[in-house]
């Protein structure tokens, strides 16, 4: 009996050990490539080699002295901002309808809003490119921004809807009972309480506007080429550590985005 228990215990520990080992491996797999890139971005040599030698900020200087890259970053930044503003303007009212509309209407509505996000990005990109061409609208920064907004609207709607659904409906009733009109109640009570969710949604919509490739590649303007397009071209052409520095900049932006998230809804709130 005891030996059998010991054997079971041993198997159990082994199994759990293997599972935890895989988990640690996965986590390492997630972080190590970025660590390597950041290390290489400080390498003094002009070619990629490991382990890196020395320390220099030269490659970062090169990134910010590269007129094409700086222009592309500026373009992508603008797209990110436009996408975010559009998603707030269209997404927050839509979330209100999704959370409070009559049951049948709101189910259909959420499917309708989520669908463009479920369609593969390149399919949406190609479809918009074709349609634009039919009516004489060529690829441009605006076409890119509008298509991306439609693509990621679902993210904003979902984040804000789930926050709305967890808000006590008595809060708005209390505001009304205290004399607020529906608009006043929305502005003074509901909107402030939605801000964390709107902020979290904005982080994701901005990142999508800034980084998206699948939709962008078919819709971007040829004169103001956004960062992912330039980045794709550069990565294919050169392996200079400058690309690593460019990656370092992007990783820094991701960290900033994550700090914003953890301050707004908390990292474990991202999933809602």
């Amino acid at each position: 009996m005891t030996t059998q228990w010991r054997y079971r215990e041993f198997l159990d520990r082994l199994g759990i050990g293997v599972i935890i080992a895989i988990a640690v491996f996965s986590l390492a797999l997630l972080v190590l490539p970025s660590v390597v890139v950041v290390m290489i971005s400080f390498d003094t040599r002009a070619f990629i080699s490991f382990p890196p030698q020395g320390f220099t900020l030269r490659w970062y200087q090169e990134v910010f002295n590269h007129p094409v890259l700086v222009g592309a970053m500026w373009t992508s930044f603008k797209v990110g901002v436009v996408v975010t503003l559009a998603c707030i303007a269209f997404g927050v009212p839509t979330a209100l309808a999704c959370a409070r509309g009559e049951l049948r209407g709101r189910t259909a509505l959420s499917i309708y809003v989520i669908a463009p996000h479920m369609v593969p990005g390149i399919v949406l990109g190609v479809a918009v490119l074709f349609t634009g061409a039919l009516v004489g609208i060529g690829p441009s920064i605006w076409l890119q921004a509008v298509t991306l907004s439609v693509f990621v609207l679902a993210v904003m709607v979902r984040t804000v809807t789930s926050r709305l659904q967890r808000l006590d409906p008595a809060l708005e009733q209390a505001a009304a009972n205290l004399g607020a009109t529906p608009f006043q109640a929305f502005r003074t009570i509901t909107l402030p309480l939605l801000m964390p969710a709107i902020l979290a949604g904005s982080v994701f919509t901005f990142v999508e506007g800034f980084d998206n490739l699948s939709v962008t590649i078919f819709t971007h303007g040829f004169r103001d080429r956004p960062l992912p397009i330039e980045l794709l071209a550069i990565v294919q052409q050169t392996s200079s550590p400058m690309v690593a520095a460019l990656s370092g900049v992007q990783i820094l932006l991701a960290i900033l985005a994550m700090i914003t998230l953890s301050l707004s809804v908390g990292l474990d709130g991202v999933n809602d």
Partner: peptide, 23 residues
């Protein structure tokens, strides 16, 4: 775990693929 999971989602796919070219 949350940081290591969410950070890559906020990072450009090209940047993350480039890391594999380096490796």
């Amino acid at each position: 775990i949350l940081v290591l999971t969410i950070a890559p989602i906020l990072t450009s796919g090209i940047v993350r693929t480039y890391a594999w070219i380096v490796i």
